[in-house]
């Protein structure tokens, strides 16, 4: 590992951290200018102005925004997101379990979707322009086009209502075993896989096809190698960088974009938690969720950046 490579990686990571700070500022500013007032929301329409002022003081809302931002950020860096307005509990402890659930759901979906997408992508390149390729192309285009609440309800109707193979509600408890949990989340996982697999598969196909037109693939062809070997040994390693990027984008979507799925399947994850508290105008919770989602997004993309730098032999082995 040479110096320039290390510098490059450190730069990417530093950029990620910087971005995170910018996002935290945006989140804070965004929730600040949000219409409505927490005190009003807690006390209801009939509250007296004195009572509202009282609550505002209690919550520290009367202090200037920059100070509150710095306090909030200082706490967040140490894992302290403050106390929920609505139920007066530590946000960090509430989130911990829910974040675990969301990551579990996303990981299960990713474990199926990523290998499936890459294998389908490679197969559709191997059998490009055949019947098989067209079928995959049409099916994945359909799954991308369907909104997830729609495919979610369809799956629920077929597998939970008609066939009764899987439960329709994905509620999980602490007492459940791993197998029971997997059973419970089968339908949301399926829905998520349907949503992300098409995008990743099509990008994998495009990335490999792009490489297949390069002169070194012609060289491989003129060596008399088999199609499979050409794709695996000569095309795939050079298509890794774009594939990593699209995978990271979809992984981020799996974590961040599950809000709708969690609501549909009543899954106790971050998304549901956030939606609940938005309606209660519980600003600290919304801020905490926003910051965590943003972190996941930025961390995954930074990992993808670093990985595609590492995938480049010119950078890995300088002259």
């Amino acid at each position: 590992m040479g110096g320039p490579l290390l510098t490059m990686i450190v730069q990417r990571i530093a950029l990620g951290v910087l971005l995170l700070f910018a996002v935290s500022l945006l989140i804070f500013a965004g929730t600040e200018i949000l219409p409505g007032d927490v005190a009003q929301a807690i006390l209801g329409q009939t509250a007296t102005p004195e009572a509202i002022a009282n609550i505002r003081e209690q919550l520290g809302l009367d202090r200037p925004a920059p100070m509150r931002y710095l306090e909030w950020l200082g706490g967040a860096v140490q894992g302290d997101f403050g106390v929920s307005y609505s139920n007066r509990q530590e946000i960090a402890t509430q989130i911990a379990g829910r974040l675990g659930n969301t990551l579990f759901l996303a990981a299960a979906a990713a474990a199926i979707a990523v290998p499936l997408a890459i294998i389908l992508g490679i197969l559709s390149v191997r059998y490009r322009n055949t019947f098989f390729d067209r079928i995959i192309s049409i099916v994945t285009l359909t799954t991308i086009s369907l909104p997830e609440f729609f495919s979610g309800y369809i799956l629920m109707f077929v597998f939970a209502v008609s066939l009764q193979w899987f439960p329709s509600s994905a509620t999980v408890y602490d007492s459940m075993t791993l197998l029971e949990r997997l059973w419970a989340i089968a339908l949301p996982v399926m829905t998520l896989v349907l949503v992300v697999v098409g995008h990743m598969m099509r990008m994998t196909r495009a990335a490999i096809l792009n490489v297949l037109s390069s002169p070194y693939v012609e060289t491989a062809e003129l060596k008399g190698l088999s199609q499979s070997r050409i794709i695996w040994r000569h095309a795939l390693p050079n298509a890794v960088a774009p594939i990593i990027n699209v995978v990271a984008l979809n992984l981020a979507y799996l974590v961040v974009g599950v809000v709708v799925i969690e609501v549909i399947f009543v899954y106790p994850g971050m998304g549901q938690y956030m939606v609940d508290h938005v309606s209660k105008r519980d600003v600290p919770v919304v801020q905490a969720c926003g910051l965590i989602f943003a972190s996941v997004y930025i961390i995954l993309n930074t990992i993808a950046d670093v990985a595609s730098v590492l995938a480049n032999p010119r950078l890995r082995h300088p002259r």
Binding site: P215, Y216, E218, T219, G224, L225, P237, R314
Partner: peptide
């Protein structure tokens, strides 16, 4: 036959070698 009995040397070796291996 290709690569065994008849082999090919391209004009631009820089492009004809796979950068990943």
């Amino acid at each position: 036959v290709r690569g065994a009995k008849v082999c090919y040397v391209a004009q631009s070796a820089a492009a004809a070698f796979n950068p990943a291996h």
